[in-house]
Amino acid sequence: MSDSVISVRGLRKSYDELEAVRGIDLEVFPEEIFAVLGPNGAGKTTTVEILEGYRDRDAGEVSVLGVDPASPTPAWRERIGIVLQSTTLEPALSVRESLQQYAGYYREPRDVDEVIELVGLGEQAGVRARKLSGGQQRRLDVGIALVGDPDLLFLDEPTTGFDPSARRQAWEMVAGLRELGKTVLLTTHYMEEAQFLADRVAIVSAGEIVALDTPENLGDRRRLPTTITFTVASGTDLSGVGTTGRPEASGQAEDGRVAVRVSTHEPVADLNRLTAWSLEGEIELEQLEVRRPSLEDVYLELTEA
């Protein structure tokens, strides 16, 4: 475990009466993109700000790049890059000037023009920050965090409030950081974001980690049943279908048809049985769909109080 970039054991933090973080353990490894996923108020930002050296903690052991962030040193600051929850830019400076200003703070900064290309702002290099779109401002924000050439990057809700295309662009940029060999700790309340970007995801709810795994395996997703849905004419006898999961009428469809749902752990075999039954009995199946449990299902199940 000594090769981990971030190591957290039993982290706790309260504000007056409110217990914001109630015993979090996690480990982030080199060159990993690690997402902390959770609803607003789950304790994500408190946790990240403790790791960034902004907040003190009540209890627990924390090591970030081998240093306790409660006593940050300039040498440690050289190795981390931070994107705060809200965009923080000097509106009067251009993209290039903003990056030059922050580059000056580091002993071995990354080349400013290279960073401009990295965050896809080549055409806006001379544009002042106040004139950039929200998505472009956020990319400049990430550029500023990258200009010190950090080993570890913190991104606190990097795409909150974005439209879908700006979000997609931001994702591609963050995914590109993997090629630079950066370790990234990301917080988000978007499931798709965690799914698209992260190697591993910790779901946080009410100050605790309720699940921690790869996006594919999260919350025993493989063990949750697959759902097959279709519609049949109303009055159809479903007793002869023969699937392992019992067909259940799940509601009224259009044209007097009935929606039916089958919950199954053998989706392929059951689909075969279902279609065979349909062909033999000349029963028409419409709107046939097979759906694996989504990360959203898992997330909602885990974070519902």
Binding site: R77, L84, Y105
Partner: peptide, 13 residues
């Protein structure tokens, strides 16, 4: 605007 906070997150004294 968060600029002081951000500055504190860099090696700048």
């Amino acid at each position: 605007a968060g600029l002081l906070k951000r500055g504190r997150g860099t090696p700048l004294p």
